[in-house]
Design a protein around this nucleic acid. Structure first.
Lengths: 212, 212
DNA sequence: ACGCAACGGAACGGTTGCGTTCCGACGCCG
DNA sequence: CGGCGTCGGAACGCAACCGTTCCGTTGCGT
C-alpha cells in the first residue's frame, strides 16, 4: 500500500504538462502534497488541492495511494530519512555545535517547520502517523545523537555511566522549544552559547543510578 | 465578541437536562468543547459534536460566540490563565523542582497534553490562536520563570548578568521535548536528575555578552 | 397567572471534501 | 501502425460541517 512506485512505470509519458517539465507525475504529486501540507495542515489538506497544485487528475493520485493518510505516510517516509546525519568533528564541543547548527537549519526550513508540529499533533489521533514519525525522524536522530555521546565517552570527555536518556532530552529540547514552540528569533551567538552551556550540563550529568 | 457571559443570564433555568445537573449551559458548552478539542483536534472539531456532547442546541452556542474560532479563543483564555503559578521555596533548587513538577503534572493532563500541541500547530495558520496562546500561556509562564531566576540572582545563587533568554529555553525545553514530542515515559527520579543538571547548567551559563 | 427569554432539537441551504468513474488525448512498444 | 496504459480534467454520489432558522417546551420574574 505504502510503496512509492519507481519513477516512470511501464507506460511512460513525455512532460505533456505546461510548467512542470521533466518531472514525473509521482514526484510532482509528492512535491505538491508537501507544499499543501505546510500551508494547510494535515487535517485541512484536500486531495483536490494537491491534484490541482500538481496539475494532475485526482485519479493519478488514487492510482498510487489508497488514501490521504497513505500518501502522507509515504511522503514522510521519503522526506524524513536523509535528515539524520551528524558529523564527527573530533571533539564533543565541535560535534555539539555541528549538531545544533544542522538542527537549527532544519527547523528553520519554512516547509518543515510547519509540517513537523502539525504531524506531531496529528499523530496523537492517527497512530500510523505517530509511528512513521517515530521511525523515520525521531529514532534516526536519537541514534545519531547517541553515537555523538558515545564518541565523547570514548574520548574521555564524558563519564561512561552517563544518563544518556536525560542527555538526549537536553540536546533536543532547548532548541526545539525555541524554534518550534516559543518561535522567537535566535540572537547572534545563541547557538554557541547553547553549546557551551550544554557542554557544562553534560559533564555535570548525574550517573544513571543517581536518584536525588 | 470574545466575552463569556456571566453564569446565568437574565432568563435562568433549572437543570432540565438529564445527566448534567446544576451546570450552566455556558460551562457545559465549554467543558464539551474542551473534551472535543482534545479528542478531535481543532481543525476537525465540529460544532454539532460540541452541541451534542453538551446536550445543547447549536443555537445556544452561536448565541454566545460568533464562530468556532471565537469559542476556542474564549476557551483558551479561560483555561490558560490559572496554570502559571510557581512557588517560592527559598532556594533555586527547590524552585526548580517545584517548577518541573508542576509543569510535568500539567503536561501529563490527558486533555491538555492533546490540546497544547494541536493549538500550537494550528496557531501557525490562524494567527489569532497563536496570539491567545502566547498571551495566555506562553507569556505568563515566561514571566513566572523569569521571577524564579531573578530570585536566585538576589540570593546570590546566579550571576546578575546571566543570559536569561537562554536560561528560559533550558528550563522549558527538555521537559516539553520529553513529554510532548518524544512522549516517552519518565523513569523514576527523572525530574530530580533534570533539576540537578539544570542547576549545573545555569551556574555555568555564559553572560549575555559572551560570544564564543 | 402570565409572558418573556432561553432552552433542546430538528431541519434548512450552501459549501466542501472524499474516493470513484468516465472521457478524449497522447505516447510507447511491439 | 495499432492498441494499451496512463494522462488531465470534469463530473458523480455521498457524507460532513457551518451557521441560521424555526418549533414546541420550560422555568423565572413580576
Amino acid at each position: 500500500m505504502t510503496e512509492v512506485p519507481d519513477e516512470n512505470g511501464k507506460g511512460k509519458r513525455k512532460p505533456a504538462g505546461a510548467a512542470v517539465l521533466q518531472e514525473s507525475v509521482t514526484s510532482a504529486i509528492l512535491r505538491a502534497a508537501f507544499a499543501e501540507l505546510a500551508e494547510t495542515g494535515y487535517a485541512r489538506m484536500s486531495m483536490d488541492a494537491v491534484a490541482k497544485r500538481a496539475r494532475v487528475g485526482k485519479a493519478a493520485i488514487y492510482r498510487r495511494w489508497t488514501s490521504k493518510q497513505d500518501m502522507v505516510v509515504a511522503l514522510s517516509a521519503q522526506v524524513g530519512v536523509p535528515l539524520a546525519e551528524i558529523a564527527d568533528t573530533g571533539s564533543l564541543r565541535g560535534d555539539l555545535l555541528a549538531y545544533l547548527r544542522a538542527t537549527s537549519k532544519l527547523l528553520r526550513h519554512p516547509l518543515a517547520s510547519q509540517i513537523v508540529p502539525d504531524l506531531l499533533a496529528e499523530g496523537a489521533r492517527e497512530p500510523v502517523l505517530a509511528q512513521v514519525f517515530a521511525d523515520v525522524v525521531e529514532r534516526p536522530r536519537r541514534e545519531r545523537a547517541t553515537e555523538l555521546l558515545q564518541r565523547a565517552v570514548e574520548r574521555g570527555e564524558l563519564p561512561p555511566d552517563m544518563d544518556t536518556d536525560l542527555a538526549l532530552d537536553l540536546l533536543f529540547g532547548p532548541l526545539y522549544w525555541r524554534l518550534m514552540v516559543s518561535r522567537e528569533r535566535m540572537p547572534p551567538g545563541y547557538v554557541d552559547r547553547l553549546a557551551d552551556t550544554l557542554l557544562a550540563a553534560l559533564v555535570a550529568l548525574p550517573s544513571v543510578a543517581a536518584h536525588a
